[in-house]
Simulated scan of single mutants.
Amino acid sequence: MRYLTAGESHGKGLSVILDGMPAGLVLDFEALDREMARRQGGYGRGRRMQIEQDRIEFTGGVRHGYTTGSPVSIWIENKDHTHWKGVMQSEPLTEPLERPRTLTRPRPGHADLVGGLKFAHRDLRDVLERSSARETAARVAVGAVAKQLLGELGVEVHSHVRSIGGIDARADLAIVPEEVEASPVRCADPDAAKRMMEEIDRAKAEGDTLGGEIEIIAEGMMPGIGSFTQNDLKLDSRIGRAVLSVNAMKAVGFGDGFELARRRGSTVQDEILYEDGYTRRTNNLGGIEGGMSTGMPIVIQAAMKPIPTLYKPLQSVDITTHEAFTAQVERSDACAVPAASVVLEAVVAIELSAAILEMFGTSTMDRLKESVATYRQEVHLF
């Protein structure tokens, strides 16, 4: 299974081609809409989310509510394009624009300058529009389909926010997905959530932004998905790459993550038990050993830097004059950590789905479910 996305932040919309989905996956369209809405929520979001009403429109590969086995084509309209038609039009301009919205003062922390150097763009909007996190709406759409496939196989993916702006949630709390969904910052700790929102308000008032830490959990995975034979087939390397590909992610860990480096091996490895099947005494390694799932919950942490678009802009240089200026200001969020947790769920679900399909290689959902059920029984009796 593979996918490609196309489209710009203020263009007409976002396109996706998803190839390799089995035939016969019956799609829950209301659940797809809910996934798209989840990405638009979260405390600290900016005005853009009040404009967009993201909906998935299938233009290929889905008929009468089920996948056909053909490439799935998805379209997501950008409502905000109405205000950017001239700036983002494909056709040559016949007369100068009243507001060209040219970008020549790159923003520190963004792709603006480096992308301009790579592609020789003198108007850095050519970089900004594609590098924008708006593209993640397309990945959430793919992830929404992938999550429905996983659900048919008994696998569920969810997430929660562990910290925002240095305010940490309690680590000893049980993570109840329904309670996380009810939190404006998607945090399982109500007291920490309140302080996180207060910190977001302070940062916003000061023209600043906040980052945070997110945990993604996949439950119900069968053991042996992934591989130890080649580096690009290892499940943790695939997931790590996918997580770090999401805008503003700067670190990824599994299980106890960086804390594992501080402990002795005898306290880190997950001892193997047999209780009506193989299990582990602990899950310090986050459900992955040797590049393969162990059958324990897969636990991933990600660190998100503060969004680099600031209403209190930092120093930059105009690429036309080389004079020092403050960076150009674009519309932005004060904090997108809660929304990013939804995006990370999506990319993890995509990688898990792809790895499962690579292992079982079936073309219909019925065959896939039969193969997975047979394999689960086989490893249970091993």
Rank of each mutant, 00 (worst) to 15 (best):
M1C: 03
S9N: 08
S9E: 07
G11C: 02
K12E: 15
L14I: 10
L18C: 06
P22F: 04
A23I: 07
A23N: 06
A31Y: 10
L32W: 06
R34E: 15
R38T: 10
R39C: 06
G46K: 08
Q50A: 15
I51W: 07
R55S: 12
I56S: 04
V62T: 08
G65E: 13
T67W: 03
T68E: 08
G69M: 11
E77S: 09
H81P: 02
W84Y: 01
W84R: 01
S90V: 14
L97C: 07
R99N: 12
R101T: 12
R105F: 11
P106S: 11
P108L: 13
G109Y: 05
L113V: 01
V114P: 02
V114M: 12
V114H: 03
L124M: 08
L128Y: 05
L128P: 02
R130K: 15
A133E: 10
R134E: 05
E135G: 00
T136I: 06
T136C: 00
T136F: 01
R139E: 09
G143R: 02
Q148T: 15
L149R: 10
L149C: 11
L150A: 01
G154W: 06
V155W: 00
V157S: 14
H158W: 07
V161I: 02
R162N: 09
S163M: 11
I164K: 09
A169T: 15
R170N: 07
P177E: 03
C187E: 12
P190M: 05
K194G: 12
R202Q: 03
K204V: 13
E206M: 15
T209H: 05
E213Q: 13
E213A: 15
I216Y: 04
I217D: 04
G220R: 07
G224F: 05
G226V: 02
T229H: 00
L233C: 08
L233N: 00
R238A: 11
R241I: 03
V252M: 09
F254G: 04
G255D: 00
R263M: 06
G265H: 08
S266E: 05
Q269E: 13
I272Y: 12
Y274F: 08
T279Q: 10
R280D: 05
R281C: 13
T282D: 05
N284Y: 00
L285E: 07
G286Q: 10
G287N: 00
E289T: 12
G295S: 13
V299H: 11
I300W: 01
A302N: 06
M304N: 03
I307F: 12
I307N: 07
I307E: 03
P308C: 08
T309G: 05
L310S: 04
P313W: 02
V317W: 06
A324W: 11
T326C: 15
A327C: 00
V329A: 01
A334Q: 01
A334N: 03
A340H: 04
L344S: 05
V347W: 07
A349P: 13
E351T: 02
E351F: 02
A354K: 15
S363W: 14
T364R: 07
E370H: 15
T374M: 14
R376M: 14
V379I: 14
H380W: 14
F382H: 13
